[in-house]
C-alpha cells in the first residue's frame, strides 16, 4: 500500500486492509492544536492539546491512557477514530492512515464515549442497536442474531424494549458499549467509559471490558482513575498537558516512584533528635514528624524502606525513644500517577 511505505512489515489481512504485523495503533509525533476564536472568527489563543505523542499498541493488548482532565485523552481518541485531523504527525490504525482510509478504519473499530452522549433517548435500547447496525452495513440476518447476544452480554436482557430515557446512567453506558460492538470491531476505543458512574456501575463496565479483552479485542482505554488502569491495563501511558510523561506496565510505573516508599514510626518521648539523625541517613529523602495525642508520628520518605527502618530502630534506642509501632507503605500507583502529572 502506498500509504504505508514507511512501514517495513506489512501484510494484507483478510479484510483487504494492509496491516502492521505487530501494532494495531501507532502514532508518530502526533500533534493537535485547537484555535480558540472570538465571535468574529479571529484567533484569540491556541491550545496545544497534544504535543508530539508517540504510542504503539499491540494487537490484542489492553492499553490505557491516563491523565487528568484536559490532558488530551479525548483528542487522541478522536484522531485515532478518524473524527479529528491531527495538526501534524501521523497515526496508523490497523495499519491504515487515519487521514486517508476513513471508511475502512471505521468498519473495523468501535468507539465508546463516556458520559450521557451517543444514544437516542426517545427510542428503545433495541432500536438504537438495530439503527447503528444498519449504519454500519451489518446485514439484517446477522444483526438479528448479534444484537440479542450483545444485549445479553451487557446485561440489558428484559429491558431492551424500554426507551433509553428510562435507563439508569449505568445501563446507558452499557448500551453504549453494545452499540460500539454491533459490527464486531476488532479494535475498541473506550474514552473514560466509567466517568460519572456509581461504584457498582463502574465495576460492571470494568467487567465488560475484561470480557472484551478475553474475546480477543484490542482495546485502548482512557481513564483518570489510576486504580482502574491498574486493574485492567497491560500497559499504561501517562499523559499530562498533551505530553507523554511515562509509558510502562503498571508494575514498572510503581517502580518509578519507589523513592516515595513511606516508613512510618509511632514513638513516645522526645523525638526531635531521632528525626534529625534519621534525616541525615544517606538514602532518606525527607522526614516529617507530627504530634498525635500522646505519641509522635515520624514519616520517612525513602527508596529503601526496610533498610531505613532497621537503622531508625537503632537510632531510636540510642536516644531512649520507644517505638510503639512501625510500618512500611509501598507507593500505590495512584501516588505514582499524581507525582508524574504534578511534575
Amino acid at each position: 500500500m502506498l500509504l504505508c511505505v514507511t512501514h517495513k512489515r506489512i501484510y494484507r489481512d483478510a479484510n483487504g486492509g494492509s496491516r502492521l504485523a505487530e501494532y494495531c495503533v501507532e502514532t508518530r509525533d502526533l500533534r493537535r492544536e485547537y484555535l480558540n476564536r472570538n465571535f468574529f472568527g479571529k484567533v484569540k489563543s491556541r491550545t496545544n492539546a497534544l504535543s508530539g505523542l508517540n504510542i504503539s499498541i499491540k494487537y490484542g493488548e489492553l492499553f490505557g491512557i491516563i491523565g487528568p482532565n484536559g490532558a488530551g485523552k479525548t483528542t487522541t481518541i478522536k484522531i485515532l477514530s478518524t473524527l479529528l485531523l491531527p495538526t501534524s504527525g501521523s497515526a496508523f490504525v490497523l495499519g491504515m492512515d487515519v487521514t486517508h482510509d476513513l471508511y475502512r478504519i471505521r468498519k473495523r473499530i468501535g468507539i465508546v464515549f463516556g458520559g450521557e452522549r451517543g444514544l437516542y433517548n426517545r427510542v428503545t435500547g433495541l432500536q438504537n442497536l438495530l439503527y447503528f447496525s444498519d449504519l454500519y452495513g451489518v446485514p439484517p440476518s446477522v444483526s438479528r442474531k448479534r444484537v440479542p447476544e450483545l444485549i445479553e452480554m451487557v446485561g440489558l436482557t428484559g429491558r431492551e424494549n424500554e426507551r433509553v430515557e428510562k435507563y439508569s446512567r449505568g445501563m446507558k453506558q452499557r448500551l453504549h458499549i453494545a452499540r460500539a460492538l454491533v459490527h464486531d470491531p476488532e479494535l475498541m476505543f473506550l474514552d473514560e467509559p466509567t466517568i460519572g458512574l456509581d461504584p457498582a456501575g463502574a465495576r460492571d463496565i470494568r467487567g465488560i471490558i475484561k470480557q472484551l479483552k478475553k474475546d480477543g479485542k484490542s482495546i485502548l482505554l482512557t481513564t483518570h482513575y489510576m486504580f482502574e488502569a491498574d486493574e485492567l491495563c497491560e500497559r499504561i501511558a501517562v499523559i499530562s498537558k498533551g505530553n507523554l510523561v511515562a509509558l510502562d506496565r503498571p508494575s514498572g510505573l510503581k517502580k518509578q516512584v519507589r523513592d516515595i516508599t513511606l516508613v512510618e514510626l509511632h514513638v513516645y518521648g522526645d523525638s526531635r533528635a531521632v528525626s534529625s539523625s534519621i534525616s541525615e541517613l544517606p538514602s532518606v529523602s525527607r522526614v516529617f514528624s507530627e504530634d498525635s495525642g500522646d505519641r509522635t508520628i515520624i514519616r520517612i520518605q525513602t527508596p529503601d524502606g526496610s533498610e531505613v527502618l532497621e537503622k531508625a530502630k537503632v537510632i531510636a534506642s540510642q536516644n531512649n525513644v520507644r517505638i510503639i509501632e512501625s510500618s512500611i507503605k509501598e507507593p500505590t500507583l495512584e501516588d505514582a500517577y499524581l507525582r508524574m502529572v504534578e511534575e
Binding site: A14, N15, K107, R122, Q127, Y131, D134, L135, G137, R163
Partner: peptide, 26 residues
C-alpha cells in the same frame, strides 16, 4: 469479510429512526 454499507439500508434506517423520534415526542 469487509462490510459493504448499503445506501438503501442506511437511508431506510435513518428515516425510520427519525420517524420514531418524531412520534415519541408528543
Amino acid at each position: 469479510m469487509a462490510l459493504e454499507v448499503s445506501r438503501i439500508q442506511v437511508v431506510k434506517a435513518s428515516m425510520v429512526l427519525t420517524a420514531r423520534n418524531f412520534f415519541a415526542d408528543p
